[in-house]
């Protein structure tokens, strides 16, 4: 079973995020970068499938030079080889633009399965994997927690709302977008890092892939969430106030 895992490098959760001048993207100087968490789960699922069924895991990532660090992390954790699509404009590409890059890189690989995170931790569009599936002409399923290989294809466990799960049987090849938390992540090891140095890392550019599409959706402006705290005093007798509070919790806060 040949599995391609599409991975994005995102700002580390602890990194201080600032808006870049112009307000169209974040200021990338002084940021620490890390592997997008749902993608880390996609990689883990792929490695476990390989350990059980044999085959090959190929890590794929699009982004500037610094993405190499995250790719090496994927190789260290157990991916067999990697493809880096070098492009410096990832931030300004829309989901279609990124999906085109990924699909173009995946196509010649002819994988049995493509796994990626259900969304990125930075912009969180949640569309890239699905669009890539369309471009590749493959069936897909989203929000997957677990994948089991069967004779006919795969059985996947899909997360629904309110604690429900759905079990789906799918043919291969297919694209799955993975939810975080379905399994336990492995830690990086010294041996993994040393072995990663000898693994193949193929580098291609967006132009070489012929996927240099102009964006359909343009990002106008980004802003940090406003910190605000507002206090409301509900008037009336305790009974009236309690009734009003319940109403607000139901309709405004929607927690009841």
């Amino acid at each position: 079973m040949k599995i391609v895992v599409a991975i994005k490098q995102v700002p580390d959760r602890d990194a201080p995020v600032r808006i870049a001048p112009g307000g169209k993207w974040i200021d990338e100087t002084d940021l620490q970068w890390a592997m997008n968490e749902p993608d880390a789960y996609a990689l883990e699922e792929a490695l476990q499938l390989k350990e059980k069924n044999g085959g090959e895991v190929v890590a794929l990532s699009a982004g500037p030079e610094r993405t190499g660090q995250t790719i090496r992390e994927a190789l260290a954790k157990g991916a067999d080889r990697a493809i880096q699509v070098v492009c410096d404009d990832l931030g300004t590409r829309d989901a279609l633009g990124v999906a085109k890059l990924l699909a173009a890189a995946i196509k010649p690989e002819n994988p049995d399965l493509v796994l990626t995170g259900l969304q990125s931790e930075d912009i969180g569009l949640g569309q890239t994997g699905v669009i890539a599936a369309e471009l590749l002409g493959l069936p897909h399923a989203t929000l997957i927690l677990h994948v089991e290989k069967t004779d006919a294809g795969v059985t996947v466990k899909r997360e629904l709302e309110e604690g429900w799960f759905q079990s789906i049987e799918m043919p291969l090849p297919a694209v799955l977008t993975m939810q975080s938390g379905g399994t336990k992540l492995r830690y990086a090891t010294l041996m993994g890092i040393k072995r990663a140095k000898t693994k193949e890392l193929k580098s291609v550019t967006a132009a070489e892939l012929g996927a240099d599409a102009a964006p359909v959706v343009v990002l106008e402006q980004i802003a940090l969430p406003k910190k605000q705290k507002s206090t409301q005093i509900l008037p009336g007798s305790p009974k009236e106030a309690a009734a009003a509070l319940i109403e607000k919790l139901k309709t405004e806060a929607r927690v009841l």
Binding site: K184, L185, R186, Y187, T189, L190, M191, G192
Partner: peptide
Amino acid sequence: AVNTGAWEDDYGA
């Protein structure tokens, strides 16, 4: 055990 990944422990990981 750790440098080769042989140690599997949820808390440790």
